[in-house]
Every structure is written in structure tokens, then in C-alpha cells.
């Protein structure tokens, strides 16, 4: 995999390059001290992975990702864990490393990277072979650096809570840093419906509907007036 390193600190770039050198599957093709030069490079060249410092003057790591049309896989590097919270907003971000980076932590990031690359390759292969694409019945959420599998049919309610969402399943609840819109894209439309600006529900889990609310398990969920007709359409009314 060809990769580039973007960091305004020469020492930080050298540290990353040294760690990468221990991975034969990675090949550093270029290093940049600022994101703008890297964008110019990526306009003409393709790479598989970017090791990207977040905190850079003028044009930071997130500005960089937002500017690139199809960003490659990104491993973020930061001195500030708080910056990394935003990482969950981007699909291209594989992991984030806090400076000073330890070799152990770098190894973990490489495992995640290889896993993501393998998954993408499998997806590409199945598409290229014109094989019927099996609909996945699960997705993974990142909670405290652990990827946790959630079986989609077991989800009952998804609620927006500021910058987070709460995913309630038949047995557990998870709080994940993402948006309702992003998770909505992952859900099968025949099963899930947004009934309120803060709620998506699994329509198969509805126990009853009364006025402008639905009962799912023991939870009463409000239904917006605008969303009620679509909800009624979904029900198998006698």
C-alpha cells in the first residue's frame, strides 16, 4: 500500500516513517509538511493511506479530508485526544494515534487498517464478479476503540442525543458518536423509519400507536405530524 505522511513537524514525520518501515506492506511515497502541498500531490497521484496530523497551522487535518473528493484511508495523528472525537464523523478514518506514538499502539492501528483494506477488497471482488450482493444484517460501531457488532433486526429505537446517538436493541443500549442521518443510510428502509427528527424506529417492533406516539417495548416515542402518514402506510392495517 502506498502511503503519504502529512505533519508539519519533521521529527513527527520521522517517527511515523520509522514505524511504517517495519511494515513491508506499507510504502511511504512522499512526506509533506503542510496539507496544501499534499492536496496538490493527490490531485495527480493516488495513494492508499494517509498518515495525517490534525493540528497544523492554516489548514488542519480535517480541512484536508473535507477538501479531498475521494479521500483514501486515513490514520490521524494528534497530540490532543479531544480533536480525535471528530474522527468518527468520517468513514475514511481508520484510527487515530496520540503523540508520542508508541509502537504497540501503532501496531493496533495497522491491524485496523489491514482489516479495513481486506474488507474493501472483499466488497470490490463481489461487485466485480457480478455476484449477488448479500445484504448485511449487521454493522459495527466504534465504542471506546472497540468495534462492536450490532445485529440490525435487533435494533428497536435509535435516538439522537446531541453529537451522539443512542442505539437500543432488544437486549442492550449503545451510545455512539455519529449522526442520525449517517446511521439512517446503513439501515434497511423497509424495516426502519424516521418518525421524529430525533428518533428512528424499527417498525416491526411497534406494539401500539396512540395519537402522536408509538409504544416500543416500554418506550413511548413521539411521532411528528409530517411523518405519521408514512408510518400509517407501513402498517398492515385490517
Amino acid at each position: 500500500m502506498n502511503c503519504i505522511i502529512i505533519d508539519d513537524e519533521m521529527l513527527a514525520r520521522a517517527v511515523i516513517a520509522q514505524m511504517i518501515s517495519l511494515h513491508t506492506e506499507l510504502n511511504v511515497v512522499e512526506e509533506f509538511s503542510n496539507a496544501i502541498e499534499a492536496i496538490k500531490y493527490l490531485n495527480k497521484n493516488e495513494v492508499d493511506v494517509v498518515f495525517l496530523d490534525i493540528h497544523m497551522p492554516d489548514f488542519n487535518g480535517f480541512d484536508f479530508i473535507n477538501t479531498i473528493k475521494n479521500p483514501p484511508k486515513v490514520v490521524l495523528i494528534t497530540s490532543d485526544k479531544n480533536f480525535a472525537i471528530n474522527a468518527f464523523e468520517y468513514d475514511c478514518i481508520v484510527d487515530y494515534l496520540v503523540k508520542p506514538i508508541t509502537e504497540e499502539r501503532f501496531e493496533k492501528a495497522m491491524q485496523k487498517l489491514n482489516w479495513r483494506v481486506d474488507t474493501s477488497k472483499k466488497d470490490d471482488t463481489s461487485l466485480n464478479d457480478n455476484m449477488p450482493v448479500e445484504k448485511t444484517n449487521e454493522f459495527y460501531v466504534n465504542i471506546n476503540n472497540r468495534l462492536i457488532k450490532i445485529d440490525i433486526p435487533t435494533i428497536t429505537i435509535i435516538k439522537a442525543k446531541g453529537d451522539y446517538i443512542s442505539i437500543k436493541t432488544d437486549t442492550t443500549s449503545y451510545t455512539v458518536h455519529t449522526t442520525l442521518k449517517k446511521i439512517e443510510e446503513k439501515l434497511p428502509k423497509n424495516l426502519f423509519l424516521k418518525i421524529h427528527r430525533s428518533f428512528i424506529i424499527n417498525t416491526k417492533k411497534i406494539i401500539d400507536i396512540e395519537d402522536n406516539s408509538v409504544l416500543i417495548g416500554k418506550d413511548v416515542i413521539p411521532v411528528s405530524r409530517g411523518n405519521k402518514p408514512e408510518l400509517m402506510k407501513r402498517l398492515n392495517l385490517l
Binding site: 513537524e9 521529527l11 493540528h55 503523540k99
Partner: peptide, 16 residues
């Protein structure tokens, strides 16, 4: 702001 950026960069050296 520039001073903060300098401190931020130097933090990495301090840690190293």
C-alpha cells in the same frame, strides 16, 4: 494563536 501552535509543536518534543 501562533504561540499556541508553537507550544503545541513543542509539546511533542517534550513528550519524546
Amino acid at each position: 494563536p501562533q504561540t499556541m501552535t508553537c507550544i503545541h509543536k513543542l509539546k511533542n518534543k517534550i513528550a519524546i
